[in-house]
């Protein structure tokens, strides 16, 4: 048996080589099958990961400039958002989207030049995700802004990043007002360092 290969010219496919390759192919197909199944199993389809509109409270129950942490089911799990009311009037032109611009330079050193957006006239709410964009710690309200206890990142009330290691401003959730109630959905972006909101 051992001299089977020696009799044949090099490059010839022997039975032994064929069987060896066959085992590799069968093993590989089975392995890839299980891998594919596992990945599909662990990553639910996008519709299941979507965060539907949820009522988080009555507009009148939020106090102007006083950030409030409210529960929200995010991707189906218990989570929360900070809701900040800027004014009592609501401008439909900007429904839910805030054109933030941070005047403070971020720690990355890029000087910010854009003017702060005048939110009082055109935007009623800011809804920030409760997780620090750095490493997902829960940050706290300081009254004049937000601060994260883990690694010291700080943010203004506008969600602009002003200190600490975070890469950018706070994550923003979509929001809308209907019949005096505030509805919040998933994250659509984050407050940019100096050029307005970015898509996350």
């Amino acid at each position: 048996m051992s001299d089977e290969n020696e009799k044949l010219p090099p490059g010839e496919v022997t039975r032994r080589k064929f069987l060896t390759a066959g085992m590799g192919v069968i093993g590989g197909v089975l392995g890839l099958g299980y891998l594919g199944m596992g990945l599909k199993y662990m990553f639910p389809p996008a519709p299941m990961m979507r965060t539907p509109w949820q009522e988080v409270g009555l507009v009148k129950d939020f106090t102007i400039s006083d950030a409030k942490l409210v529960p929200l089911l995010y991707q189906g799990h218990r989570d929360g958002v900070w809701v900040l009311k800027w004014s009592d009037s609501y401008d439909h032109q900007f429904s839910g989207k805030r054109l933030a611009a941070c005047t403070q330079p971020a720690l990355s050193g890029k000087a910010a030049t854009a003017e702060r957006y005048d939110h009082t006239n055109s935007n009623q709410f800011s809804v920030y995700d409760m997780h620090c964009p750095h490493l997902h710690c829960p940050f706290a309200s300081t009254g004049t802004g937000f601060a994260c206890p883990c690694h010291g990142s700080q943010y203004t009330l506008d969600g602009c990043h002003i200190a600490g290691p975070a890469p950018h401003g706070l994550y923003l959730h979509s929001w809308k007002v209907e019949a005096g109630k505030l509805y919040v959905a998933g994250i659509y972006g984050y407050v940019g360092t100096h050029m307005g909101d970015q898509n996350a």
Partner: peptide, 17 residues
């Protein structure tokens, strides 16, 4: 990150994983 956490943030799926 999403594979281990089962989402964008740590949640109940992270526990079972």
């Amino acid at each position: 990150m999403t594979m281990f956490q089962g989402g964008e943030f740590t949640n109940s799926l992270t526990l079972t994983r």
